[in-house]
């Protein structure tokens, strides 16, 4: 038996909206410690890793580990039927072929349930090493979203360079070129409006803007985003989802021919 209840159901809606274009399907791995998902896009260029801790839910129970194969487009269709203020409960029997989603309105006067058909998905699991990165940048998630959106209108790839001057995003295309530099800025009173650059050594890497732009669909989940960079390694883009957990994106760099 698996059961997870979250009062703030809109978080689940936002999570699935953030993932569904990047990965069409994946396994929700549930255990007594929470719900995780690891899924790569079809070209194996980027990876989404989602962790929702058991204690982040208002109620959580999982008697045995299960992998629930989810089609995110279908899950999104069902979650669109939930109100933003609804409490959402996920439920599945052991070895079930469906996941039940129950939506309760805030004043309990409307209760609905939907069964999502589960899939059998063979997924490749990658071991992501814990490591120190050359540069870690925390910035407002809306700022990150604006930068990658603006640059996507100019070019296809972005060179991200972190130096002691700041972090520079550069692109070029048919229109011309663009450079946006962010400096360390801890003056805003609100921590979520600050830009904090932790630089161990300068680093410069090139990435496909299409994916970085896609990661910014997670913006509604968190006020800040963290970018971590190390030479010749994938970029790591992380959103903390309150006390519930996090959603992490990894994107392989462009490499010289």
């Amino acid at each position: 038996m698996f059961e997870a209840r979250i009062t703030q159901g809109s978080v689940l809606k936002k999570l699935v909206e953030a993932l569904k274009e990047l990965v069409t399907e994946g396994n929700f791995d549930v255990s007594s410690t929470g719900l995780t998902l690891q899924a790569m896009d079809s070209s194996h260029v980027c990876l989404v890793s989602l962790t929702l801790r058991d204690d982040g839910f208002d109620h959580y129970r999982c008697d045995r580990n299960m992998a629930m194969g989810i089609h995110f487009g279908n899950l999104s269709k069902i979650l669109k039927c939930a109100g933003n203020e609804d409490t959402i409960t996920l439920k599945a029997e052991d070895n079930a072929d469906t996941l039940t989603l129950m939506f309760e309105s805030a004043n309990q006067d409307r209760i609905s349930d939907f069964d999502l058909k589960l899939m059998s998905i063979e997924s490749e699991h990658l071991g992501i090493p814990d490591q120190d990165y050359s540069a870690e940048i925390k910035m407002p998630s809306a700022e990150y979203q604006r930068i990658v959106r603006d640059l996507t209108s100019i070019g296809d790839t972005v060179l991200i360079s972190a130096t002691k001057e700041g972090i520079k995003f550069s692109t070029s295309g048919d229109v011309g070129t663009a450079n946006i530099t962010l400096r360390h800025n801890t003056t805003p009173e609100k921590p979520e409006e600050q830009t904090i650059i932790d630089l161990k050594e300068p680093v410069a890497l090139t990435f496909a803007l299409r994916y970085l732009n896609n990661f910014s669909k997670a913006t509604p989940l968190a006020p800040q985003v963290k970018l971590s960079l190390t030479k010749d390694l994938p970029i790591f883009v992380e959103y903390q989802v309150g006390d519930l957990g996090n959603v992490r994106f990894f994107l392989a760099p462009k490499i010289d021919d």
């Binding site: 070209s43 194996h44 980027c46 990658l126």
Partner: peptide
Amino acid sequence: MQQGTLTAFFPST
């Protein structure tokens, strides 16, 4: 430049 794949960086487990 060529697009790398993640499987070249992270081992399969």
